[in-house]
Structure formats: structure tokens, C-alpha cells
């Protein structure tokens, strides 16, 4: 899967290690007697300053894969059963618990969807941000507080110093998400994983938060992994898109390429269901059917029951992830046809 690496940025292969390499990642949920394969062979690379979007419906395995990269899966029931996650060339999955923990928040940080439940309700937001400095940098109480206020200022929380002691429930949804961002950025990590960072917010606030995130990413030259189900969010900020369906990657390409020439019927369907300026006046076409139940993934190509192009081959044969066009991967038997349309 080394061909996945974007050659233009890597230069000569060899000594260079990408910021993050995820290779053939597998995650299973094991519950009483049954096993659910939540992530089924996910691979991508992330470079410094780059944004990779992982796109999929709920149950596609996108959030689980992010937690696996972060090393915060609920084990049990979730188990990483295979693959590799390398941070600057260093394997994370085999790293001892302590060292892995030291990476979290420090080199890789995460932003969660619902800040109200993701922030601890009984500690003030300031304390929760300051905790990063206290634990990882062994900062003094006063130092940590000063830095936390500085961060709250940086994510544009009005009168930050006065709000240091306020609790999560006293903030609006957008302000809470800013607190989450401040907490994630505290130690200037190399990678930020944002799991649906704007889904719980109003549309106008969504925009502000995404802009803030993009701006801070640029300033700090971080790699950003953006997990979302919202194509609209992706278009503006992502460099590369990985589309997941039922735990597997169905398509992967640079953002312009993917928008211009989707290589998988699922992506095609997603694009057709989103209103754009170009589609003004045209009828939006939703994808029919239900997102797959991970406990009963359809045979062959998991998307075939909802696919308009499905043939007799699709329920029988699992399509491999191929490269029908340079730098453009697709797991469809008819990828060339889809690309051609």
C-alpha cells in the first residue's frame, strides 16, 4: 500500500517518514458470542500541515478507527486485530501503555463531537485545559492557569480570564467546542483528530468553528484528521478524502479529484444528495435504503443492496481496493465506468 503515499510531497522514498501512516487497520467488537468487524482494512497517510477527511455514515467505522489511532478504544468490547499505525515512523500499536499515553494529548490530540458530554461536568473548563500542562509539562498551578487563559483567548472566548472558573454547562455549544479545541491544542500537538467537530452545532456556528480550526492548523502546521459525514464541511478544508462504508474504505482521492470524478457509486450518491450552487434548481437524489448493520454486512460488495449500478457480480464477489486512475483508489468492480461518467 506504499503507493498510497503522495509522491509529490514525499519526494524520494526512503528516509522520510510521513507524520502518520495507518496501514490495513482492523478493529473488531467482541460481545457475548458475536463479533462485529467495525473497521476492515483502513489505510491512509497524513503529512505535516495536511488535512485528511474520513467520510462516512454512522456505523461506517470512521469514529472507531480514529479512537484506534488514538489508542482510546473501549477494550473490551473493541479490539484492534491487525494493521499498523506509525507516527513519524514509530509503531504505536505495540507501544507500551505508558508511552502510548504520553503521546496522547501531547503529540496527537482529539476533538470530540459533543463537547457537553465530552467535557467533565464537575470541573471548570479552565481546570480541564490547565490539566494538560499540569500533567504533561509538570507546570505549576499558576503557570498552567496562565497558559489555559492564553489558550482560551486564542480560541476567541470572550473575557477568557473571567470564564476560567465556569463549568461546561454554563457555555453555549459553540463556546464549548472552542474549549475542546483549546484543550486539544494546548500542547501544540503534531496531529489533531477531529471527530465530527461541528455536527452538534448550529450551521452558522459550524462555519466559525471550522474556520477557527483551519486557521489554527495552518498556524501550527499540524496534520488534521477530520472525521465527518458532512460533505459540505469537507470540501473547504480537506486535502485528501477517504470514504468509508461498512467498515471498509470504498474510495480515496485528493479532494478536487474526488469531487470532480467520484470513483465509487456510494460517493457518487453522496455528492448527488448534497445541494451545491451547480445543482441549483435540480432535484436532489438521496441514496435509497438504510446504512448497513455492522452485525449483518451484506455479502460481496457491502454497498450492493443500495447501489444503482449493482450487477449479479456484486453480491458474490468482494471488490478489491484498486487504483483505476493515478492517485485515485476505488473499491468498485466498475470503478472505471463510474469514473468515466
Amino acid at each position: 500500500m506504499t503507493e498510497l503515499t503522495d509522491v509529490s510531497k514525499t519526494g524520494a522514498a526512503g528516509a522520510h517518514h510521513p507524520l502518520l501512516e495507518v496501514e490495513d487497520l482492523h478493529v473488531e467488537f467482541r460481545m457475548q458470542g458475536s463479533t462485529v468487524r467495525a473497521v476492515n482494512g483502513l489505510s491512509y497517510t497524513l503529512e505535516k500541515g495536511q488535512t485528511v477527511a474520513i467520510l462516512g455514515e454512522s456505523g461506517s467505522g470512521k469514529s472507531v478507527s480514529a479512537q484506534a489511532v488514538m489508542g482510546i478504544l473501549d477494550t473490551p468490547p473493541a479490539h484492534v486485530t491487525g494493521g499498523s499505525v506509525r507516527f513519524q515512523g514509530q509503531e504505536l500499536l505495540t507501544l507500551p501503555e505508558r508511552e502510548r499515553r504520553a503521546m496522547c494529548g501531547n503529540r496527537i490530540a482529539m476533538i470530540f463531537q459533543d463537547a457537553l458530554s465530552a467535557l467533565n461536568p464537575v470541573h471548570s473548563v479552565g481546570i480541564q485545559i490547565a490539566e494538560m500542562f499540569r500533567v504533561h509539562r509538570k507546570a505549576s498551578r499558576a503557570e498552567a492557569k496562565a497558559k489555559a487563559i492564553e489558550l482560551m483567548d486564542r480560541v476567541r472566548i470572550p473575557s477568557a480570564a473571567a470564564r476560567f472558573g465556569d463549568y461546561p454547562h454554563q457555555f453555549s455549544g459553540g463556546m464549548r467546542q472552542r474549549i475542546m479545541i483549546a484543550m486539544a491544542l494546548a500542547l501544540e500537538p503534531d496531529i489533531i483528530i477531529a471527530d465530527e467537530p461541528t455536527t452538534a452545532l448550529d450551521v452558522t456556528v459550524q462555519n466559525q468553528i471550522m474556520k477557527l480550526l483551519a486557521k489554527l492548523q495552518e498556524e501550527m502546521e499540524m496534520g488534521l484528521i477530520l472525521i465527518t459525514h458532512d460533505l459540505g464541511v469537507v470540501a473547504d478544508v480537506a486535502d485528501k478524502i477517504v470514504v468509508m462504508y461498512a467498515g471498509s474504505v470504498v474510495e480515496q482521492a485528493d479532494v478536487e479529484e474526488l469531487y470532480a470524478r467520484p470513483g465509487h457509486p456510494y460517493t457518487e450518491g453522496l455528492l448527488a444528495s448534497v445541494p451545491t450552487l451547480a445543482s441549483k434548481g435540480q432535484r436532489l437524489v438521496p441514496i435509497t435504503g438504510q446504512p448497513p448493520n455492522l452485525a449483518a454486512i451484506p455479502s460481496g460488495c457491502a454497498f450492493h443492496p443500495r447501489c444503482k449500478r449493482a450487477t449479479d457480480r456484486c453480491p458474490v464477489e468482494v471488490p478489491a481496493l484498486r487504483e483505476p486512475a493515478p492517485g485515485h483508489l476505488s473499491a468498485c468492480h466498475y470503478a472505471e465506468e463510474v469514473l468515466g461518467d
Binding site: Q67, M70, I72, D74, R101, A102, M103, C104, G105, N106, A109, M110, F112, D114, S117, A118, L119, N120, P121, V122, H123, E131, M132, V135, H136, M183
Partner: peptide
């Protein structure tokens, strides 16, 4: 969810349990 956040913050296990889990 906040327990997951605490782990994502890279806090040592005892701190996650005492400061975040027990308190709540």
C-alpha cells in the same frame, strides 16, 4: 464521553480514575 476525553488527554490511569471517574 468525558472518560474517553480524559484518556485522549493522555492522563495517567490513576488520575483518570480519581479525578474524573470517582469525582463524578
Amino acid at each position: 464521553d468525558y472518560m474517553r476525553t480524559a484518556r485522549a488527554k493522555g492522563l495517567p490511569k490513576h488520575r483518570v480514575v480519581v479525578r474524573h471517574l470517582l469525582r463524578n
